[in-house]
Amino acid sequence: MNDRDLMKLTRRKFLIVGAVTATSVALPPFISALASAANSARPVTNPVSMEVNGVPRQMNLDTRTTLLDALREHLQLTGTKKGCDHGQCGACTVIANGRRVNSCLTLAVMQQGSKITTVEGLGTPDKLHPMQAAFIKHDGYQCGYCTPGQICSAVAVLDEIRQGIPSHASPSLTDRPELIAREFQERMSGNICRCGAYSNIIQAISEVAEATA
């Protein structure tokens, strides 16, 4: 690899190459051979088909592949981010069959036949989704890593309130929940923002809620 090739590498590919190199340096070859010998079960692949952002996609995946990894590593839809990979941060939030879920905590094979919407499916740089535009207008991010998950979650939150689904912040279980900041704050608690852009995120959601009320 010459310098020119290196310059062409995206940051993402550079990180992958770096990680592979680091692994091969850190572990002598026999360690990984031993590890796989101890693991007698062999990887199993299954065919999976799902509709992602309106496009039918077919893949042959190791059963262990999460929906998140299928999106990022197999369909190259890298808008959805891997934060904690344990359902604690919400960076991987996508909309599956109309409902927001943590894509890191569902297997791709379990989503056979599902309709998935990622941040790439909400809008494009030329035609932003109103929630994307509102996040930009209100500075609803700093580093931007949690933003795709925040936006997918926020879009679904407004939908959940309109469907009348109550929350921990709803004063009454029988009245319709309101499109107010207190509700947004509670319902967005599964999306962590390390930069602390929370107040601007709530402003963005509030603006979209008012515009579409």
Partner: peptide
């Protein structure tokens, strides 16, 4: 919500919106 409000409240106090959906 009407007859077993306790159950709704317990569920809504747990986890996150994404997790409760799954």
């Amino acid at each position: 919500r009407k007859d077993y409000g306790l159950l709704s409240r317990a569920l809504l106090a747990g986890a996150s919106g994404q997790l409760r959906n799954a």
